[in-house]
Write a protein that binds this DNA or RNA. Sequence first.
DNA 1: CGGATTGTTGAGGATACTCAAGTTAGGTGG
DNA 2: CCACCTAACTTGAGTATCCTCAACAATCCG
Lengths: 236, 236
Amino acid sequence: MTAPDRSILKSLPMFAQLNDAELDKVAARAASRRLAPGSVVFGQGDAAEHFFVLVHGRLRVTQVTPQGEQIVVRMINPGDLFGLAKALRRSTYPGTSTAVVESLALSWPMTDWDAMVAHHPAFAASTIQTIGDRLQDAHSRIREMSTEVVERRVGHMVLRLAQQSGKREAEGIRIDFPISKQDLAEMTGTTLHTVSRILMAWEEAGLVDSGRQKLLVKDPHRLLLIADGLQPGLLG
Amino acid sequence: MTAPDRSILKSLPMFAQLNDAELDKVAARAASRRLAPGSVVFGQGDAAEHFFVLVHGRLRVTQVTPQGEQIVVRMINPGDLFGLAKALRRSTYPGTSTAVVESLALSWPMTDWDAMVAHHPAFAASTIQTIGDRLQDAHSRIREMSTEVVERRVGHMVLRLAQQSGKREAEGIRIDFPISKQDLAEMTGTTLHTVSRILMAWEEAGLVDSGRQKLLVKDPHRLLLIADGLQPGLLG
DNA sequence: CGGATTGTTGAGGATACTCAAGTTAGGTGG
DNA sequence: CCACCTAACTTGAGTATCCTCAACAATCCG
């Protein structure tokens, strides 16, 4: 819970345009927080007292419906702002943020939010773009869930994960954090059974390599053809 | 295409906090545009040269997928900002905006965007909130499409429309713009056939009154019970 | 090594889609 | 003002997708 160095802030896009004096002021208000895998940064419904930036690691944001079903809203990658309840005009966090690997986040008191937006136009613009990106992503998911069968939805989600959180390896693109079939199901609106069957079929065709919480995309090109409906799916 | 009066701007939430001098400056850059029903404000893929505020009327934003299927992204209500391609880091509009009733919109050149965000913190904050609201709405739809059967999704959508665009009448809440079964289907990721069957069942139970492009919610309370899954659906 | 979590696979069935045929409402032009 | 024409809607039958339920297998962790 110590104040972070100015250089850490400088590497984050939303602060890149601030001068050193401004950076120091912003850094003085921040606290940094190490997050063990599985630890919860904030829970759905908690009073939104801080907003955050992820410095490194990976978080998963989930929501639980009144009926008790869980969905994965999104993954948070390094450099992302999160916990922006204020921007959503909410006093509580709409979802739960959980670290999936060892992570480091910076936090500011939510009471600083309005001042930061008002005094740092670059921060405001960056925030608008961040939320704008998320909105686009959300619309993509809505469009996919409206018009695509399950196999194509899972395909698009896997490709999106590979793009956002993939690491090039000899055999293909590795999703570089632990991800379960259940996670994929909760991201695409299906069941872990269906995800399992789909990944098995893809594995037999040499498109991916999937194991317990592991996922390697071996043939992104062919997977894209299936996701885009240009090639028939591989389910029996 | 004349410059609008300062008083029109003042009534819009994103400009409410500007003083008269600022308002005049902003108004001088704006053009106003009347929109006949069915007319298109901008099309998907068009160069994003303006951003807009809807003064009165109602617009429908649609997207067409590469496969040619259409979805309704959202309805635009009076006071809403729209065409914010810049905030989405896009040079083209991601969707098509069509007037569903006689409407009036103000427009600004997109080149003014950065200056408006930078010089008017209240405008920036309001924009963040606008996009934040939309993001919440999108997440609600994702959650609904992930976890709810069709009848409940349609229920939630009808209730949302009633809330956003409903007018109290003797018999119930009237959706005050023309809306077809096809529209509802494209908002909920189903087919017009299924929507028709659902509304017929609700009509027989006295929950709604639906006709050609007409929709009246007669019993929102009971409809909410069905939408929330607290009462069984009415489909055979 | 044992328990717990994660994943695989099969069978059966329900939801909602597709295909198909008509019906109604509203606008348009004669 | 009426007849026609189109767009919107209704309804039925058959079926595919994907979910649910169930049982078991593999992997990880302490």
